Computed example of a mutant assay.
Amino acid sequence: MSNIHPTALVADGARLDPTVTVGPYTVIGEHVTIGAGTTVGAHCVIDGHTTIGADNRIFQFNSIGAIPQDKKYAGEPTELVIGDRNTIREFCTLNLGVPQAGGITTVGHDNWIMAYTHIAHDCHVGNHTTLANNTTLAGHVHLGDWVTVGGLTGIHQFVKIGAHAMVGFASAVSQDVPPFMLVDGNPLAVRGYNVVGLRRRGFSAERIAAVKQMHKLIYRQGLTLEAARAAIAELAQSAPQASDDAAMMEQFLADATRGIAR
């Protein structure tokens, strides 16, 4: 392929679309698949059973598909799956899964992953997320769609962050963050709801008002979590435009395993 630099090392078993571009001194392993239009910069290592979709931009000096940083891992053929149109900046590390947790790490579509980000084994990153420099995801972290994480933030293993939430700069996230919330700090605290992000994404006034009401129910009215969930379920009936948002919040609270950020 003319768009593979002559100094790159691409294993015989690797499957690269003819439109893939690979920069100098990059190493690609035999079980790697890369889709159409993806560009891989110089000095990258892409290994393991890694599948990368179309039109991704992978900058120089990345380690993608390396074995997980988990002492239980014994060389099993686990996976890393990356979707389409992601930007992965310099010095990021994305690891394979471990068999005990399903054996797959996933990154969705249209994500903006900035330099020095670490995505550990069995993480599941949604679509349209923004992970600023030095974001660190420990194992089994789940990020919903449109999540934004500020730089120098650490996220504890097994934490879930709901869709449209925003985590501020240099935060320590050790509990689940409900959808739409705005959090920061160490210890982490909820500062409000992500109204600016929702407006940018075209949320109607009715939907934003419903998110504001959910924030009040969970954090401002002294309700138990069960009582807040019940009130949010009723909100889904009284605000039809926001019924999906309320249902997502109610389900997230039901599934929270580490307690929610307060």
Rank of each mutant, 00 (worst) to 15 (best):
R57V: 12
V45W: 08
L94G: 04
Q251P: 06
H142S: 15
G144W: 08
V196E: 12
M214L: 05
D255P: 07
F61H: 15
A227C: 05
L94N: 01
A261L: 10
N194L: 02
V196Q: 13
P77M: 07
I82F: 01
W146C: 15
P187K: 07
F61I: 03
N62Y: 12
H140L: 03
A115P: 02
A163Y: 07
I232M: 04
C123M: 00
D47W: 10
G108S: 01
R89H: 05
N134Y: 12
Y116R: 06
H121N: 03
T87Q: 07
G29F: 12
K160Q: 13
T26W: 10
Y193R: 01
G151I: 13
Q69Y: 00
E90Y: 06
L198V: 05
D244M: 12
P178E: 09
A11N: 06
A138G: 10
V196T: 11
T148G: 15
V22G: 04
P187V: 08
V107W: 01
V159Q: 06
G259Y: 05
H156I: 01
V98N: 00
V32I: 09
A231I: 06
D244F: 08
E79K: 13
G13Y: 03
I113R: 07
Q251E: 11
A230I: 09
G35Q: 14
G144T: 11
G197E: 06
V183E: 05
I104H: 02
I119N: 04
L253S: 02
Q241R: 12
K212S: 12
A172W: 06
R207M: 11
D110R: 14
H5K: 00
T19P: 00
K71S: 14
V141W: 03
H215P: 04
G48T: 11
K160V: 11
A120S: 14
H142G: 09
R201P: 10
A228G: 03
P179V: 09
P18H: 03
H215D: 05
T51L: 08
L80T: 10
V141E: 07
N86D: 01
G150N: 12
T87N: 03
G29C: 14
V125C: 01
T135Y: 01
G150E: 15
N3W: 11
A170R: 13
I67C: 04
D55K: 15
Q157L: 04
R201N: 13
V195L: 13
G103L: 02
G144V: 09
V149W: 00
Q100E: 15
W112Q: 12
H5I: 00
T136I: 14
W112Y: 14
E234M: 10
I67N: 06
F61S: 13
L131Q: 13
P77G: 07
P178F: 02
I4H: 09
F169M: 11
V107Y: 00
A138C: 14
V81A: 02
D84S: 09
L152V: 13
L253A: 07
A36R: 15
